[in-house]
């Protein structure tokens, strides 16, 4: 069964915390292969973590 965008992005998010099962990966790829919005979401996810780290680092040495 095809995943919707909500469930697809939920799996993409969880992938940063846990390994997905084979069937989860297949469903995710199937959806992302056809939905460029979800594909964009997936590409942008790591940037959020990266930005949070930069911000924390900046706060550590800000005001010095």
């Amino acid at each position: 069964m095809m995943l919707n965008c909500h469930d697809t992005t939920f799996l993409m998010s969880q992938r940063r915390e846990r390994d997905l099962s084979f069937s989860e990966r297949m469903k995710l790829r199937l959806h992302a292969g056809m939905c460029r919005h979800c594909a964009n979401f997936e590409r942008q996810l790591p940037l959020l973590g990266e930005a949070a780290k930069r911000l924390a680092a900046q706060e550590d040495d800000h005001g010095v």
């Binding site: 979800c38 590409r43 942008q44 940037l47 930005a51 930069r54």
Partner: peptide, 11 residues
């Protein structure tokens, strides 16, 4: 979600 132009630059 739209495609983002040069997201790395933002960092």
């Amino acid at each position: 979600p739209a495609a983002w132009e040069d997201p790395e630059a933002g960092l």
